[in-house]
């Protein structure tokens, strides 16, 4: 009862933090989904171009271009940012030219990232990114990758080859095949991955408040430093509710996204 009283009194700040929490989660997930789905699709495609020598040459040329871009056009940025920029750039260039190799590397690295405890991962980025919103987003985006990439990859590769073959055989272009056939069929599985990721991120975002990104975790951490049981419980319960609502809501979205022909009823 005292607890409920406590919550009611602080409803204002609670709502503010919920909004901040949701903002952090949604902001991170937008990036995470975009990166993960695109790379999940890319690693299902064959490497391009087919000629290995040509591929190697193109790869080296674009890496050099990347160095140029990172180190000439972003002169005013600190060196660490430039390195990150260049790594991201190299990541996508690599995806285009060496899909099979990169598929294994990406899935392996992502699975390692997943095992690293969140507080440690936030900590690892502090020397490079400092504390605050930006650090939290980078770590959250990294965490969110694996379930989405893995599901996108699994969803697309599990499509009956007869389906994609007949799409091509009927004269659909590669882009049409991806957008009209592969993605819609894989969508339920991709959505399941997004749901897993989001619920996970909703929890980890609470910890991010320790490194200065506003979120619901603030209640717990403030409660700890002030020794207020009410505050800690409020924070814990509220975070739990947030995660459960997110899960429930995305469960609905998942159903809604499943094309009728693929529903099992």
């Amino acid at each position: 009862m005292r607890l409920i009283n406590f919550m009611v009194q602080r409803i204002n700040i609670l709502l503010q933090l919920t909004a901040a929490h949701a903002y952090l989660v949604i902001f991170s997930m937008i990036f995470a989904i975009a990166i993960a789905v695109v790379s999940g699709i890319l690693i299902t495609l064959p490497s391009w171009p087919k000629n290995i020598l040509l591929r190697n040459i193109l790869f080296i040329i674009s890496l050099l271009a990347g160095i140029l871009i990172a180190f000439i056009f972003y002169k005013e940025q600190p060196i660490s940012n430039r390195i990150i920029l260049f790594m991201l750039y190299g990541f996508f260039i690599g995806l285009i030219f060496y899909r099979k190799v990169l598929r294994n590397v990406i899935l392996y690295i992502d699975s390692i990232i997943m095992t690293i405890p969140s507080i440690a991962l936030f900590g690892l980025f502090i020397p490079i990114l400092g504390i605050g919103f930006f650090n939290a987003v980078v770590a959250l985006v990294l965490y969110a990758q694996l379930p989405i990439i893995r599901n996108t990859y699994a969803g697309i590769t599990s499509i009956d080859p007869a389906v994609t073959d007949s799409a091509r055989g009927m004269g659909m272009s590669n882009l049409q095949i991806i957008l009209k056939v592969k993605l819609p069929i894989a969508l339920p599985i991709i959505m399941a991955g997004i749901r897993t990721s989001t619920v996970m991120i909703a929890g980890i975002a609470a910890i991010a408040s320790y490194i200065g990104a506003k979120s619901l975790g603030e209640f717990i951490f403030r409660g700890i430093s002030r020794g207020s049981q009410n505050m800690i419980l409020t924070g814990a319960i509220w975070i739990g509710i947030f995660a459960i609502i997110t899960d429930f809501f995305l469960g609905r979205v998942e159903k809604w996204f499943t094309p009728k022909g693929l529903r099992v009823d």
Binding site: V199, A202, G203, I204, A206, I207, G217, I220, G223, I224, Q229, N230, I232, L233, G235, A236, I237, I239, G240, A243, I244, D247
Partner: peptide
Amino acid sequence: NFGQTLPSLAVIGLMMGL
């Protein structure tokens, strides 16, 4: 399943509160 969606921080906080 419900419990697994609870974030670890919430569980730690909950136990500490109790």
